[in-house]
């Protein structure tokens, strides 16, 4: 009997919440903590990572049956490194300011475990369409998380949001927020909030199941 496939909508949405690469799986924390000194940096890193993730997932799912298991990781790394170098070169050529701002973290996308993880866990086992949907969902989840993290740090550390001043001059910027410690603090609060929401949802689901079970017994 063929294994029942997850609906395509669920496949897409899982990256945004249930399997969010940063907030649930804690993957790709190096760029997450290092480059999110501003919201725009978060968007830039997220979009670059999503591009690499989608392209690598598409290519690897297309050739998955031709790659011997023994050399699959080596092949995945070469494919990922190729797309990362393409992003790095094109960013330097077309968006030099953004490239400068993200610095060495663009080439380091090669070793972002989110990308290799999705190739190994998903793209190498699924068809191209499902792989692209998975990659776009994961990439979007990663980008949104980095953008929110960057926006909070930029707002409190620099009074601005996407470069525009939001808080008045009377607000003394919290310099710690744009330092590495600010990244850890903000991510910590975000993880705490996500865990609290998840826990409450689980408790609500359990309560609903119990109520339903009691209703059935009484009936």
């Amino acid at each position: 009997m063929a294994k029942k496939q997850t609906p395509i909508g669920t496949e897409f949405m899982k990256g945004l919440w249930d399997q969010n690469p940063v907030l649930k799986a804690l993957l790709g924390l190096c760029p997450t903590l290092a480059v999110t000194t501003s919201a725009m940096n978060g968007v830039g890193m997220g979009v670059a990572t999503t591009f690499v993730l989608v392209c690598a997932s598409l290519l690897i799912s297309l050739v998955r049956k031709a790659i011997p298991t023994q050399v699959r990781i080596a092949s995945f790394i070469v494919v990922i490194a190729t797309f990362v170098t393409i992003v790095d070169l094109e960013m330097k050529a077309l968006f030099p300011a953004m490239s400068k701002s993200l610095g060495a973290f663009i080439p380091l996308i090669v070793v972002n475990c989110l990308i290799l993880g999705r190739q190994e866990a998903f793209a190498s086992k699924n068809n191209p369409f499902r792989s692209i949907v998975d990659a776009v969902g994961m990439g979007l989840g990663f980008t949104l998380t980095l953008t929110v993290l960057g926006a909070v740090r930029e707002l409190l550390g620099n009074r601005t949001m996407f470069g525009f001043q939001v808080l008045p001059d009377a607000f003394e910027p919290w310099i710690v927020m744009i330092l590495p410690a600010g990244a850890f603090l903000t991510l910590g609060f975000m993880l705490g909030a996500v865990n609290t929401i998840t826990h409450r949802r689980e408790q609500a689901a359990i309560a609903t199941r119990r109520a339903a079970s009691l209703t059935v017994k009484e009936a």
């Binding site: 070169l89 094109e90 330097k92 050529a93 077309l94 030099p96």
Partner: peptide, 8 residues
């Protein structure tokens, strides 16, 4: 990309 990078 190389000519664009050099130009930048």
């Amino acid at each position: 990309a190389a000519p664009l990078i050099a130009e930048n």
